[in-house]
Design a protein around this nucleic acid. Structure first.
Lengths: 154, 154
DNA sequence: ACCGTGTTGTTGACGTGTCCTCAAAATATG
DNA sequence: CATATTTTGAGGACACGTCAACAACACGGT
């Protein structure tokens, strides 16, 4: 392998800006969620697809697909949320391996209270500072990077 | 407070794309680092400013400022890295509260081996898919979002 | 029916990140 | 000088994420 291609000045700057945005945006949103609704980011991520499912009921595998998590991570998080009364676990009639996850009344109350405030925060930090043309451009940029990252994992 | 301003179709799509990129890019890079160099992302983040400091020596507070971490997180991580022999802790002559962090020979070897491979991965996932104009646009977009997130935390 | 293979979910170990508290030392204030 | 206040770092408790191992089940072909 030959000489490394280092980042030029602009690239190093943009790369640092991206990492700062990643860190600050995530922490700003997690803190807003916890402060205003008592939910963690992980709670919220699971509550959204559950609240959209019929009867607030989803098979664990499906839920995992919705959020793009590994099975282990999902299992740990569901157990934590069950302890806090946000969801319950039930066995699956169709497939004896499966586990069904059901949103509790308390869980639905929590997500419905949290969602508007959270969306407002996403707006303020992410979309409000951009023009409509800039959102178009951003979509195209992120799409290209997602393709590249996807190829990385093969 | 009135009706919530929900995200429109494009906004929801872009927001999800951003979160996917955040997740996949981070995990791709962390896995590449660990596989090729035996370092975690947290290790790498601290080793970079340490390797650039004179004598590989930095005061803990300065190191925290470089990477933008809280003191507690930094303290935990330094202790873990000391156990693995990447750094050592020394007392600070100027300020008896202070702690100095020094890169070990083994730590310098590790970061110097890891850096070229890591930069190459950043290139493949982040910069190679973009034209030079697109990098310009991205810098401007991220800048605006960083400003907005910064205002959030006041 | 049987066997091999893939899928689904759980579990334990470990590294990581945040919150909170504590103690020591430096610094500001009266 | 004496007393707050702030700064710095350590450390415990807890939530989170990944990995590897495991058990139970589904499904295909024979």
């Amino acid at each position: 392998m030959g000489e490394a291609r280092w980042l030029d000045e602009q690239e190093a700057r943009v790369w640092k800006m991206y990492r700062d945005l990643r860190r600050d945006l995530q922490s700003a949103q997690d803190r807003q969620l916890l402060r205003d609704s008592g939910l963690s980011g992980a709670d919220y991520a699971l509550l959204v697809p559950l609240s959209e499912a019929p009867d607030g009921l989803l098979r664990s595998r499906e839920l995992g697909r919705e959020v793009g998590w590994e099975r282990s991570r999902l299992s740990h998080q569901i157990i934590r949320m069950e302890k806090r009364g946000l969801v319950t676990r039930e066995s699956c009639a169709d497939d004896a391996r499966g586990a069904m996850v059901r949103l509790t009344v308390s869980g639905r109350t929590a997500i419905e209270a949290a969602a508007p405030l959270h969306v407002e925060t996403v707006r303020r930090c992410f979309f409000d500072p951009l023009t409509s043309q800039e959102v178009d451009a951003l979509e195209s940029l992120i799409g290209k990077m997602l393709d590249a990252v996807g190829r990385e994992q093969e």
